[in-house]
């Protein structure tokens, strides 16, 4: 209207701005650039993720290679050369002479992987069930949401422990250590899908009555097509917020389980396992074995949480 129509000889095909260009011009990106909290926590999270991914390249030692371990290096203090070998460890070593910095990098790897995979699993499950409940309604909805309600009455960590225990009981002994990580992911994921399902169902109920969905029904689009192509993209913003906050919770849940000794096995220690190991030495004065993994966990969970908080505010138009 305000724009003049194209002259007839102009090429019809005009290149559309890419989604990336649009994203960089958006208000969302603008608020991000103007929020120091969001910027700092993003940098921290990205650094930690990179450190976890490239742990084998970054870590000065491989703490799980018995050949490289020297028991003489045990209980080295941080930033002080070892009394016997003269080796320097930034964050000290534990009782077996493993470099704490390296174990943290490897532990971060396990923690982040388990957390992210568990959230992904919970997200896929929760979105699917939430979409179904919201769009189909009727008995489908009643059953899904009642199951969700029942599960909400148990603390998530209890549910995870229950699932973990059952799974451990039915897997053969020789596979237990191998399976432990996957069981952990499923256990945490299953304890966490409910909030995704609830939010998606609520958003779906709103979206499905909007006229664009009616327009799609009108032209004979099938229900799965409407759910996936029309509704799903429009319910993703709250999901993104929950996923971020869930990631922090899942990492902590994993640490809790591992701390309790039912999580990651000692052969693949996560941050939680490291904290469990470290707390045994706290009272004998070797504080660094506990402190550094705990501080890492804290920084990670805090950054992810702050990011989630900021996302929630940024994606909620009413708060702006």
């Amino acid at each position: 209207m305000t724009e003049m129509p194209l002259p007839p000889d102009a090429p019809i095909a005009v290149k559309d701005p890419s989604r990336l260009t649009l994203a960089l011009q958006s208000d969302f990106y603008y608020t991000f650039r103007h929020s120091p909290v969001a910027m700092v926590s993003t940098v921290v999270v990205v650094l930690m993720v990179l450190a976890a991914i490239f742990a084998p390249l970054i870590a000065p030692y491989n703490p799980f290679d018995p050949a490289s371990l020297n028991l003489m290096n045990g209980f080295s203090r941080p930033m002080e050369p070892n009394a016997f070998t003269g080796d320097l460890f930034w964050l000290g070593t534990d009782d077996q002479g493993r470099d704490v910095f390296s174990t943290i990098l490897y532990g971060l790897r396990i923690s982040l992987f388990v957390g992210a995979a568990a959230v992904l699993f919970a997200m896929v499950l929760g979105i699917t069930l939430g979409l179904l409940a919201g769009y189909v309604g009727g008995w489908t909805e009643t059953i899904i949401m009642r199951v969700a309600d029942v599960q909400l009455t148990f603390p998530a960590i209890l549910v995870a422990m229950l699932i973990f225990g059952v799974a451990k009981g039915i897997t053969p002994v020789e596979y237990r250590d191998q399976m432990a990580i996957w069981v952990l992911i499923i256990a945490i994921g299953l304890s966490d899908w409910v909030q995704f399902a609830r939010v998606v169902r609520g958003a779906t109920l709103v979206e499905k009555n909007k006229e664009y969905v009616q327009a799609a029904r009108l032209i004979g689009r099938t229900s799965p097509a409407i759910m996936l192509r029309h509704i799903l993209p429009n319910v993703l913003s709250p999901v993104l917020v929950i996923a971020t906050i869930s990631l922090a919770l899942a990492i902590i849940a994993e640490a809790t389980l591992s701390f309790l000794g039912v999580g990651a096995p000692p052969t693949q220690p996560s941050l939680g396992t490291l904290i469990r190991i470290g707390q045994g030495f706290l009272f004998s004065g070797e504080w660094w074995i506990l402190l550094f993994p705990a501080a890492t966990l804290l920084t990670l969970a805090l950054s992810v949480n702050l990011l989630g908080d900021w996302l929630r505010d940024a994606l909620n138009p009413r708060l702006r």
């Binding site: 664009y212 009616q214 009108l218 032209i219 993209p233 429009n234």
Partner: peptide, 27 residues
């Protein structure tokens, strides 16, 4: 075909105008 009352609710906000317009034919 149908034209709806609320022009803010009747177009999928996540789709490009091109995809919205051709959907009845593309479907």
């Amino acid at each position: 075909q149908m034209i709806f009352q609320d022009p803010f609710a009747s177009l999928n906000p996540r789709w490009r105008v091109r995809d919205i317009i051709v959907e009845p034919v593309a479907a």
